[in-house]
């Protein structure tokens, strides 16, 4: 058995980190630990993006996921405090859900196997980034011949900017509108209906800070009538 190449080592380490992070995310009892697992998985995948010549995406992955999404998860977990923890969670998964998940696991593994080790020998290799037959550089040369412009390298900020602001400007603007709507919607949903909070006695000064979420929740419960009995 020959020595593994540096690419194989890099891929193996990153993949192992990603899978480990994913497993921690899914199995951790404590959601904070889960969020940390998600962070690990995201980092692993960002590293894999680098190996696929997606430098810009790797940066975005870290900024958006690690910097924003995971932090948002942590905020919510901390806002909920101990209630974010659901201790009975692991033991009561419905049998059919487990069965479905197991089937999915088996099926996806089987499919992956049959797909690419079916003996036909058509396993595609990545086209090389160095000069030679089948190289990406040949395509770059062809584009240069056709348009007289030297294209940017695959996955660089320059290349992505070209895609986002030239070819995909309209989808990009639509995405920005989507984000705006999401922000407004998130604020509206998270804040709840006005007047739902506990009624303040008259004379209390209006500038007092909003009631803690627990108090608001109990008020909401009172407004919604008797809550269904929880299973013990």
């Amino acid at each position: 058995m020959s020595m593994p190449t540096i690419q194989q080592v890099y891929f193996s380490i990153c993949a192992a980190l990603a899978v480990a992070g994913a497993v921690i995310t899914v199995l951790a009892r404590n959601p904070i630990r889960g969020a940390m697992g998600l962070l690990l998985a995201i980092g692993g995948m960002a590293a894999l993006f680098l190996s696929l010549s997606a430098e810009f995406l790797a940066a975005v992955q870290l900024l958006v996921y690690a910097g924003a999404v995971v932090v948002l998860f942590l905020f919510v977990i901390m806002l909920l405090g101990p209630d974010a923890h659901t201790p009975r969670d692991k033991s009561v998964a419905a049998p059919r859900l487990v069965a479905a998940a197991g089937a999915l696991l088996v099926a996806s593994g089987g499919i992956a196997t049959i797909l690419f080790w079916n003996g036909t020998g058509r396993v595609p290799a990545f086209p090389p980034l160095v000069p030679g037959p089948g190289s990406v550089l040949n395509v770059e040369a062809a584009i240069e011949r056709a348009s007289g412009v030297t294209p940017a390298k695959l996955g660089t900020i320059e290349a992505m900017a070209n895609e986002v602001y030239v070819a995909g400007l309209v989808p990009f603007e639509i995405a920005s509108a989507l984000l705006l709507v999401a922000v407004v919607g998130a604020v509206a949903v998270a804040r709840g209906r006005q007047g739902e909070g506990p009624r303040r006695p008259a004379g209390e000064k209006s500038g007092s800070p909003p009631a803690p979420i627990g108090a608001m929740a109990s008020a909401a419960d009172a407004a919604a009538g008797p809550a269904p009995a929880r299973r013990a």
């Binding site: 995310t25 974010a84 659901t86 969670d89 998964a93 859900l97 998940a101």
Partner: peptide, 8 residues
């Protein structure tokens, strides 16, 4: 499919 914690 298996976890009941919405956050997870």
């Amino acid at each position: 499919l298996t976890r009941r914690n919405v956050l997870v």
